[in-house]
């Protein structure tokens, strides 16, 4: 486990050195512009607009990073053959994968935390203060992080057996399908076809159900988010990541490095 931590720290260092966190500048500019504009265009609902815009931006930027960096975590190491010298050290392949996952998760966590701080600043600017009900925004940010962890685990899984392009398509496709998991589940009911209903139900349960992680509207309207949902989503994300990482390990442990 210690060796996975060493890999994770280096993965984080790589992201920092490759200036991945520069996206924060874009987010900061977006938040400043939004804070200045909403006061003029949305009388009475400034807070709702700024929270919705901010959380959506945090989610979108995070997803883009998780997909595009995630699919390169393993493939880039194999393509550049940096992995050869590393695996010649006493590092097991699962430790390498876990380290890569943890490193990108740490990068995304730091990135998301910085963006959340920016959002809090924008909210403070618009409202003049931060209130206890605004804690719902923190829960929404936490859910975004859980969602990103699942996306990273999927990207890592695909990158263990296919090309970066296909990994990107598969991960992005699964993400979009996961956002619409409830709609997919309802297809059978709408058509009234029992066979289609069974297939749609089965498929929707395999997909990561990202709909449950979307509480942006609730946070924007300062509605309290149930503690049970927090526990459920945490457990769901942990189990989904564990399954995806186990699959990735099983594939990668048998893979020949050419």
């Amino acid at each position: 486990m210690k060796r996975a931590g060493i890999v994770a720290w280096n993965t984080f260092r790589e992201a920092v050195r490759d200036r991945v966190l520069y996206n924060l500048v874009f987010f900061a500019l977006l938040m400043i512009a939004a804070a200045l504009l909403v006061g003029q265009i949305s009388i009475g609902i400034e807070q709702i607009v700024i929270v919705t815009l901010g959380l959506s931006a945090i989610s979108l930027i995070g997803i883009l990073m998780a997909v595009f960096i995630g699919v390169g975590l393993v493939s880039k190491e194999m393509e550049k053959r940096t992995l050869y010298a590393l695996l010649a050290k006493p590092v097991r392949r699962w430790e390498f994968l876990l380290g890569k996952f943890a490193g990108l998760a740490l990068t995304l966590a730091v990135n998301t935390a910085a963006m959340a701080t920016g959002l809090a600043g924008a909210m403070w600017l618009v409202q003049g203060s931060l209130r206890a009900e605004d804690a719902a925004v923190l829960v929404a940010v936490y859910f975004i992080l859980l969602k990103l962890a699942i996306v990273v685990s999927l990207a890592l899984l695909f990158s263990c057996f296919t090309t970066p392009l296909l990994s990107t398509l598969f991960t992005a496709g699964l993400y979009v399908a996961g956002v619409f998991a409830p709609e997919i589940r309802a297809i059978g009911k709408v058509t009234g076809n029992a066979a289609l209903d069974a297939v749609a139900m089965g498929f929707s349960y395999l997909l990561p159900n990202f709909d449950n992680f979307n509480v942006i509207a609730a946070a924007a309207h300062r509605r309290a988010i149930p503690g049970m949902l927090v526990a459920q989503n945490t457990l769901y994300a942990a189990v989904y990541c564990a399954i995806a990482l186990t699959g990735a390990t099983m594939i990668f442990s048998r893979r020949n490095l050419k």
């Binding site: 280096n10 260092r13 790589e14 050195r17 490759d18 550049k80 053959r81 940096t82 050869y84 010298a85 010649a88 050290k89 006493p90 590092v91 097991r92």
Partner: peptide
């Protein structure tokens, strides 16, 4: 046996390492 790699040193052909380090 990966644990044995404590006793082995390896130079890959045309080595390439993390260039940001």
């Amino acid at each position: 046996d990966v644990g044995m790699h404590n006793e082995i040193g390896y130079l890959p052909e045309q080595p390439y390492f993390y260039d940001y380090l």
